[in-house]
C-alpha cells in the first residue's frame, strides 16, 4: 500500500440521511452520518435494533435511496450516478447478508447462484470459463466441489453463508458491506466464517463495513468502530481504544452490558433505564438524554456536536471530556 491510498479513504460518507415517511411523521432512520474507511480496513458499525446501522449500509450501496448526503467511493460520488453507471459501480461494492436462508434464491443451485454475477456483468465468455470461475470461487470460500449442484435448503447455515460470500466476491469488489453476517450462525460455525472473512481480507485487500449488534464480534474484526444510537453515530474510535475506555455514556453502557464469561458483571454493570426512544420526529437535544445518568440541562435542549476529542476519536456528547468512563 502506498502513501497515497493511506491518505485518501476508499469510502467517504458525508452527512448521509435517510428519512422514511410514516403516518405518524418523518422517521429519521439515518440522521446526518459521516465517516470514512481506509482501504483494506474494517469499520465496525454497532448499535441496538432500530439504531439505523442496517439502513446506513443499504443507503451507501443505494439499495435504499438516501434522502441526502454524499457517498464518495474511489473519488466518485455515487449518490448522483444514474442507473446504468451505478450498475457498473456495483461490481466494486458488494454486500453480504445476515440471513443465509432468505438471501439465496431457493430455486437456484449453488453453482448458478455463484455464477449469476458473472453472467450479469458478462465477465466470462463461454460455459467452460464460467464453470472454472465458479469452481475457483467455491475453492476460495472452502466449499466442497461436489456441492455445486445442491440447493441452498440442503445445506447448513455455515455453508449457505459461504455461498453468499462467494457470490459477493465473484466480481472482485474492493468494498463489502457485511450486514450481520454471522448473527444467525452457531458459535463454532461463526468462528469459521469470521476467520474466512479475515483471510479473504488479507489476501484480496478488501475493505469491510461490518454491521452487527454483537460487541464481541465487532471488537474482534474491526480496526475502527462506530457506535450508533437512534440514527446517529455517537462515538467513533479505533477498536482497541474504545474498549479500553469510552467517551459516550451509551457506549459505556453498551459495553458494560455484555454478559461476560469470567465474572458476574452485576457489580460493574451499568444497567440503562428505559428503552430506546422513537426515531420519529426526534426533538432537539441529545437523543440519549432521557436514559443517561449524566444528563444535564443542556443535553435536553441542544443537540451535541460530533467532534474529535483526541486523535482518531470523535464523540457526540456535551460532557465527554469531563466524564471519565
Amino acid at each position: 500500500m502506498n502513501n497515497h491510498s493511506d491518505m485518501i479513504p476508499i469510502l467517504q460518507v458525508k452527512n448521509l440521511k435517510k428519512y422514511f415517511t410514516t403516518p405518524r411523521g418523518m422517521l429519521h432512520a439515518v440522521d446526518d452520518v459521516s465517516f470514512a474507511i481506509q482501504e483494506g480496513k474494517t469499520l465496525g458499525v454497532v448499535g441496538e435494533s432500530g439504531c439505523g446501522k442496517t439502513t446506513t449500509g443499504r443507503a451507501i450501496l443505494r439499495l435504499i435511496e438516501p434522502t441526502s448526503g454524499s457517498v464518495v467511493f474511489n473519488g466518485i460520488d455515487i449518490t448522483s450516478l444514474e442507473k446504468n453507471k451505478l450498475r457498473i459501480m456495483r461490481e466494486k461494492m458488494q454486500i453480504i447478508f445476515q440471513d443465509p436462508y432468505s438471501s439465496l434464491d431457493p430455486r437456484m443451485s449453488v453453482a448458478s447462484i455463484i455464477a449469476e454475477p458473472l453472467i450479469i456483468h458478462k465477465r466470462v465468455s463461454g460455459k467452460k470459463e464460467l464453470l472454472k470461475q465458479v469452481q475457483k470461487l467455491m475453492e476460495m470460500v472452502e466449499l466442497e466441489d461436489r456441492l455445486s449442484s445442491s440447493y441452498p435448503h440442503e445445506l447448513d447455515g455455515g455453508r449457505r453463508q459461504r455461498i453468499g460470500i462467494a457470490r459477493a466476491l465473484a466480481l472482485e469488489p474492493q468494498f463489502i458491506v457485511c450486514d450481520e453476517p454471522v448473527s444467525s450462525l452457531d458459535v463454532s460455525v461463526q468462528a469459521q466464517i469470521l476467520n474466512l472473512m479475515q483471510d479473504l481480507q488479507d489476501r484480496l485487500g478488501l475493505t469491510y463495513m461490518f454491521v452487527t449488534h454483537d460487541m464481541a464480534v465487532v471488537k474482534h474484526i474491526s480496526d475502527e468502530i462506530a457506535v450508533m444510537y437512534l440514527g446517529q453515530i455517537i462515538e467513533l474510535s479505533p477498536a482497541k481504544d474504545l474498549f479500553a475506555h469510552q467517551y459516550h455514556p451509551y457506549s459505556h453502557a453498551l459495553i458494560s452490558a455484555i454478559p461476560k464469561i469470567e465474572s458476574k458483571t452485576d457489580e460493574t454493570m451499568t444497567i440503562l433505564k428505559g428503552e430506546i426512544g422513537s426515531p420519529i420526529e426526534p426533538k432537539p437535544g441529545c437523543r440519549f438524554a432521557l436514559r443517561c445518568e449524566y444528563c444535564i440541562e443542556k443535553c435536553l435542549t441542544d443537540t451535541p456536536v460530533f467532534k474529535t476529542i483526541e486523535s482518531g476519536r470523535a464523540v457526540a456528547c456535551w460532557r465527554a471530556e469531563e466524564l471519565s468512563l
Binding site: 441496538e48 435494533s49 452485576d266 454493570m269 444497567i271 440503562l272 430506546i276
Partner: peptide, 11 residues
C-alpha cells in the same frame, strides 16, 4: 433482545 435490555431482563 438487545444487549442493554438483555442485561435488564437477566438481572
Amino acid at each position: 433482545l438487545d444487549v442493554t435490555i438483555q442485561a435488564q431482563v437477566l438481572k
